[in-house]
Amino acid sequence: MGTHQLTTINNSDTFEDSICDLFNHLESTFTYKRFGKNGHNQKGIDVFSTEKDCAIQCKKKDLSRKDLLIKKEIFNDIEKDVNKVINDDLKVKIDKLIFVSTYKDHPEIDEFCEILKEELNTDFEIIYWGWDTLESKFLANKELLNKYWSNFIIKTDSKETHFKRNLDLKKKIAKDFGNWLNDSQANRKLRSRILLRAFDGTQYPDENEPDEFGQYSWFRAEIKSLYHKGMEFIIGIDEIQVFEDYTWDFTSNDNEPKGELVNVAKVGQINFSDIIDYDIDGDEYYMFPHVFCKFIHKGTPFENIYYYNLDKTYEYFEIKDKRK
């Protein structure tokens, strides 16, 4: 199965209806229904099932805002609604209170639910399902896909299709980036600059705040070469010390080096599968090529990072990190 992405549901009533349908399907029941509507005293819940002793609160979020703001808002929502359930004399017996959201899954929200349960000593579990979880559940149900995403078509990508797509992309990149790839490293200078961008990033060009991994959704790099699975980019220059047994470590200002000092380029490898597309001309902000990628490797597009020697005419050598 290929990678699919459902658009989030933007209407609050439709979102709650879809959650009723989803949980009725998942738990093989017809007892999940909406607990009133906007304007009613919903006492902290939107959907419930008396048979399953489960209540659900639906949180449709404006995803155009900063992640930090959305996450903080969800923390506040969960705490406020849990206190409503406790203090507003809810007559429905519940063993689980599930918060579902159009915002993504996040471990900090899961941890917050656990902490809140302990602090308030609730009789019910507090659980969070973000859009990643909901999407996987909806994708497994054709009936719900037809009902809420009638224009969505699942396409199965065979290995042959995937292989051909990557091979075609490699040929296209080799042609379009020929002026960069075929020029010597010494002659490239500024002309080899590339802007790497998350294809689904929302910060460019006005801001560039790091994510939870401390990584950025767009940054400059220097194109280096193609490799058998994708493109290579120089993303930094480091100084290391290589020891007699060919292990190595980064140099430190705190200690005297104990090995041979070597300047190395830090090279990131991006798989063709993680390259969505590119714009060879750039835009009015950065007038050099933009490569749009999936930033799925701990906040980066790089499936692998290695170092190579800058002091020996770009000669490759295998180096092993002494810290491992």
Rank of each mutant, 00 (worst) to 15 (best):
M1V: 06
G2H: 10
T3N: 13
T3K: 13
H4C: 12
D13I: 15
T14A: 10
F15L: 10
S18C: 13
D21W: 04
H25G: 05
F30Q: 14
G39L: 12
Q42Y: 02
K43P: 06
K43S: 10
K43T: 01
D46G: 09
D46R: 08
S49H: 04
S49E: 11
T50S: 15
C54N: 13
I56N: 01
Q57K: 05
K60R: 13
K61C: 13
D67A: 11
K71I: 15
E73T: 12
I78W: 05
I78D: 09
K80L: 00
K84H: 14
I86H: 03
I86E: 10
K93W: 07
L97T: 05
L97M: 06
I98P: 01
F99P: 07
V100L: 04
D105S: 11
H106P: 05
P107Q: 00
I109G: 01
D110F: 11
D123F: 04
E125M: 03
E125A: 11
I126D: 05
I127H: 08
W129N: 04
W129G: 01
W131A: 01
E135P: 03
S136G: 04
K137I: 02
L139H: 09
N141V: 14
N141Y: 01
K142D: 14
K142I: 01
K147R: 08
K147G: 02
Y148T: 08
N151P: 01
F152T: 06
I153A: 12
E160D: 14
K164P: 12
K164W: 13
N166T: 11
L167N: 08
L169N: 08
L169I: 03
K172T: 13
A174L: 13
A174F: 03
L181D: 13
N182E: 12
Q185I: 03
N187P: 04
R188K: 13
K189D: 12
K189F: 12
L190V: 11
L190I: 15
S192M: 06
I194Q: 09
I194H: 00
R197A: 05
T202E: 15
D206K: 09
N208P: 05
N208L: 00
D211P: 09
F213W: 15
G214K: 04
S217F: 01
E222D: 10
E232Y: 02
E232V: 00
V242G: 04
S252Y: 10
K258G: 14
L261H: 02
A265F: 11
K266H: 00
K266M: 11
Q269T: 11
Q269I: 02
S273I: 00
S273N: 14
D281L: 13
G282D: 09
D283F: 04
D283Y: 00
D283S: 02
Y286D: 15
F288P: 07
F295V: 01
P301A: 04
N304T: 05
N304D: 09
Y306G: 03
Y307N: 09
D311C: 01
T313C: 00
Y314D: 15
